[in-house]
């Protein structure tokens, strides 16, 4: 089971590295990297510092610490997923409103163009 803790350790560090690289290549905007970096840092801390996992293990009556750590991993990433789902939903709404506004403005511009052309024709 200790291997599982080491795995979480390595995965959290790797994930942090991937996020940093993505930031450097501008594939992730800094404001969206904060949740990932925070989650990675939290996982790394929980895996090297047994206190919170041991507390959770005792609280829930779990048989061992790695299971408690996996529960923490699950909770942290669920929180990240939820945060991003909310953000994506907001962005989708904004995107639709923006697309509709662009279409309406294009419609008005075309109408004005036609009016100008007609008045010039007269």
């Amino acid at each position: 089971m200790e291997r599982l803790i080491q795995l979480v350790n390595v995965v959290s560090l790797l994930l942090m590295l991937v996020v940093f690289l993505s930031l450097r290549r501008q594939r992730i905007r800094p404001e969206y990297s904060v949740a990932w970096l925070g989650a990675c840092a939290a996982l790394f801390l929980f895996s090297v510092w047994p206190g919170p996992a041991l507390w959770l293990q005792r609280m829930l009556g779990l048989p061992d610490r790695p299971l408690a750590l996996m529960l923490i991993v699950f909770a942290v990433f669920m929180a990240v997923f939820y945060r991003f789902t909310v953000r994506i939903s907001d962005l989708k709404d904004s995107n639709i409103a923006l697309a509709q506004r662009v279409a309406i403005l294009e419609f008005h511009i075309r109408s004005l163009d036609e009016k100008v052309k007609n008045s010039n024709g007269n």
Partner: peptide
Amino acid sequence: AQVLPLPHHLGLGGCVQAGYKLAYE
């Protein structure tokens, strides 16, 4: 007909609502 061209595919609801918005305005 006059055409309200959406800049990208919005699906039926977004498409109809764009028409309602323009009509209201």
